[in-house]
Amino acid sequence: MQTIIWDHPVRLGVAGERSINGPQDALQYLNEMPQGGWFFERARNRCREALERGEALGLSRKAFIGAAIESSFPMLDDDIQA
């Protein structure tokens, strides 16, 4: 199985100490998070779709960023813009 990664990782933590490189990493991280709201569910669904179909990678990344913001996890600002 080929590893699917995003063009730019999402770096979480005050200093970006945890790097989320793609939908598989994102799903693993979401499983560690407390259950969230709408963005959490959207991120899980988008990441699963990206892994199953290999498409809409940008949407899965944006959905994961939304879930991280919704859960108030610190994230490097440049990752939000990319």
Score class of each variant (00 low, 15 high):
residue 27 L to P: 02
residue 60 S to Y: 06
residue 28 Q to S: 14
residue 20 I to H: 00
residue 37 G to R: 13
residue 55 E to D: 13
residue 43 A to E: 06
residue 57 L to Y: 04
residue 47 C to H: 04
residue 75 M to H: 07
residue 2 Q to G: 09
residue 68 A to E: 02
residue 51 L to A: 03
residue 12 L to T: 04
residue 21 N to M: 08
residue 42 R to M: 09
residue 6 W to E: 02
residue 62 K to R: 15
residue 54 G to Q: 03
residue 68 A to P: 08
residue 36 G to A: 04
residue 33 M to S: 02
residue 56 A to K: 09
residue 59 L to R: 05
residue 12 L to I: 06
residue 2 Q to L: 08
residue 71 S to E: 10
residue 81 Q to N: 15
residue 65 I to L: 09
residue 82 A to T: 14
residue 59 L to S: 11
residue 68 A to Y: 00
residue 76 L to S: 01
residue 39 F to C: 11
residue 55 E to V: 12
residue 62 K to A: 09
residue 37 G to M: 01
residue 29 Y to T: 08
residue 2 Q to F: 12
residue 35 Q to Y: 12
residue 30 L to D: 01
residue 81 Q to W: 13
residue 77 D to V: 13
residue 10 V to M: 03
residue 32 E to H: 04
residue 34 P to M: 06
residue 25 D to T: 04
residue 65 I to E: 05
residue 81 Q to T: 14
residue 55 E to P: 02
residue 73 F to N: 13
residue 63 A to Y: 05
residue 11 R to A: 07
residue 8 H to T: 00
residue 68 A to F: 00
residue 69 I to C: 08
residue 24 Q to L: 12
residue 8 H to R: 10
residue 74 P to A: 08
residue 28 Q to D: 15
residue 49 E to T: 07
residue 42 R to S: 12
residue 2 Q to P: 14
residue 78 D to N: 13
residue 2 Q to H: 14
residue 45 N to T: 13
residue 18 R to V: 07
residue 2 Q to Y: 12
residue 31 N to E: 12
residue 16 G to L: 04
residue 2 Q to V: 14
residue 24 Q to N: 10
residue 41 E to Q: 07
residue 3 T to F: 10
residue 75 M to S: 11
residue 55 E to I: 12
residue 80 I to N: 01
residue 15 A to T: 15
residue 49 E to C: 07
residue 5 I to L: 13
residue 72 S to Q: 15
residue 76 L to V: 09
residue 39 F to L: 11
residue 25 D to W: 00
residue 4 I to T: 12
residue 50 A to K: 01
residue 22 G to Y: 02
residue 64 F to S: 04
residue 47 C to E: 01
residue 20 I to L: 07
residue 73 F to K: 15
residue 68 A to Q: 07
residue 13 G to W: 11
residue 19 S to R: 14
residue 17 E to L: 02
residue 66 G to L: 01
residue 28 Q to G: 12
residue 70 E to P: 09
residue 38 W to K: 15
residue 48 R to N: 10
residue 43 A to F: 01
residue 10 V to L: 02
residue 62 K to C: 12
residue 37 G to K: 05
residue 63 A to K: 09
residue 4 I to M: 06
residue 59 L to C: 09
